[in-house]
Design a protein around this nucleic acid. Structure first.
Length: 447
RNA sequence: GUGGAUAUAGCUCAGUUGGUUAGAGCGCCAGGUUGUGGCCCUGGAGGUCGUCGGUUCAAAACCGAUUAUCCACCCCA
């Protein structure tokens, strides 16, 4: 088939048979964030380019080679957001949210855009869930945000993801650490790979992250950030750990976590998987105590995280995490003849008024074909009716699971069917309670 | 941007050392006696074999280029 065009490289369609999964994930995330006191913020997909170059950082890969930047017809340089924090921070400042009681806790679901070569867990258009907590430097906030991330995974039933934390200190600590690193790597300079040689000047911390065998061997003995952070930063980090211990959240200290965005300070963390390919960071975040000032505001210590929804979904698939089933048709009406067909369309409307998912044939198929169709749709009930039934007023609804039929009068069809659906639902609820699987979260998740 | 693998029907894939009209399973549509699904049976639709060029009497197959997809590097969520 010669298609005119296909979806753009690195983009994905969510098809009707799968959309319930992402709907479930998104509503669950927002629900949990709300539970933690975060409110949704929505910001535009595009911003002035300078917002990102300033906050994410001029020298980062994201800004240097991955942004979708263009001039609009008025000659303004515009960029599709490569991440969510900058926009939220801009809105926080622009609308004076710093005058509201602090901290301001916001969350969002957004699409993000980065011009990269696609691979497993990496797309050019991808989706993030993120939270930001503006206006607190307390380690308690760090722990709360991390615990929110942790809560998400446990709530969804994901087990094989581990939390790694680190502190990269404040800007003073980092200056000292960079120097220490530089002088350390200078010694093995001739053995480093070309990219790391470049990093040595620009950002020596990145060398720690290099996967080339030689570089990682050299960096094994390299100075560790935690030995170079000042006493304030060190205290802060220790307290974060204490809070996490108090909440019984397991973590591993990974001194090699180096976030690639310039705004991070002090606490940084990642929730990592080994099951979804090379891009294993499902959730990443940290503190950015200097960002708000960088954007022209007053000093406002803050922090947040972002989670890759496609990666989250990959992980859920890898672990076979159960997801509530897609809503299916509750009753499929099968009219015979024109008169019945007209009755069907108004009857369906009345059922829908009651919140019942009702459908009927709109292509003119035979009764048999309609039954097949209803079956494939997963309809719970069908009802076939023509002249005879309309005259007698008795309609026979058929339970598609067991084939049993029940007669319902036409004049109170909607009310009776509604009652049947309620009975069925309470039956399922009792069954769930008796089976010991009852958890309020399952019920909520099923909505 | 660099590297590796792959490209045949809507999906998953066969297709011998180049040789008639390119196949299967699943899915889709229609039948299997008046108006009842799932199982089974029958039939049908659907492919310029990713694209362009080359070798050859002959190419889905061999060669070259190009594009796309997947995976990895880089970097991030």
């Amino acid at each position: 088939m010669a298609l005119l065009t296909k979806a753009i490289k690195g983009t994905q369609d969510v098809l009707p048979s799968k959309s319930h999964i992402i709907q479930y994930i998104e509503s669950t995330l927002m629900e949990i964030a709300g539970n933690f006191g975060f409110s949704e913020i929505r910001t535009p997909v595009f911003e002035h380019t300078v917002l990102f170059s300033r906050s994410v950082g001029d020298t980062t890969d994201v800004v240097q080679k991955e942004m979708y930047t263009f001039n609009d017809k008025g000659g303004r340089s515009i960029t599709l957001r490569p991440e969510g924090t900058a926009g939220a921070a801009r809105a926080f400042l622009e609308h004076g949210l710093f005058n509201e009681p602090l901290p301001q806790k916001v969350c969002y679901l957004t699409s993000c855009y980065r011009y990269e070569k696609p691979q497993a867990g990496r797309l050019r258009e991808f989706h993030q869930f993120g939270v930001e907590c503006f206006g607190t430097d307390s380690p308690c906030a760090d722990a709360e945000v991390i615990s929110l991330g942790n809560r998400i995974f446990t709530f969804l039933g994901i087990e094989n993801i581990s939390l790694e934390i680190n502190s990269i200190g404040c800007s003073d600590c980092r200056k000292k650490y960079h120097e220490a690193l530089k002088s350390y790597f200078e010694k093995g300079k001739d053995k480093l790979c070309p990219t790391c040689l470049d990093r040595l000047e620009r950002n020596p911390m990145r060398i720690l992250d290099c996967k080339s065998p030689v570089c990682s061997q050299i960096s094994a003995e390299a100075p560790v950030v935690l030995d170079y952070i000042c006493s304030e930063c060190s205290d802060h980090f220790n307290q974060v750990k204490d809070y996490l211990d108090e909440m019984q959240i397991e973590y591993k200290i990974n001194p090699k976590i180096v976030r690639g965005l310039d705004y991070y300070t002090r606490t940084v963390f990642e929730f990592v998987s080994t099951q979804i390919g090379a891009q294993g960071t499902v959730l990443g975040g940290g503190r950015y105590d200097g960002l708000i000032e960088e954007l022209g505001g007053q000093k406002t210590p803050s922090l947040g995280f972002a989670m890759g929804l496609e990666r989250l979904q990959l992980q859920m698939e890898a672990e076979n995490v159960p997801v509530p089933e897609q809503n299916t048709c509750e009753i499929y009406l099968i009219p015979i003849g024109e008169k019945a067909s007209k009755t069907a369309c108004s009857l369906a409307l009345n059922l829908r008024d009651k919140g019942i998912r009702a459908e009927y044939d709109i292509v003119g198929r035979s009764v048999k074909a309609q039954m097949k169709f209803a079956n494939k749709k997963g309809a719970s009930y069908t009802v076939v009716f023509g002249e005879d039934e309309l005259n007698s007023g008795n309609l026979l609804i058929k339970n598609m699971d067991n084939g049993e039929t029940v007669s319902i009068r036409l004049e109170n069809f909607v009310e009776r069917f509604y009652e049947i659906m309620i009975e069925q639902a309470t039956g399922e609820l009792e069954e769930m309670m008796n089976s010991g699987k009852s958890d309020i979260s399952n019920l909520l998740g099923g909505q």
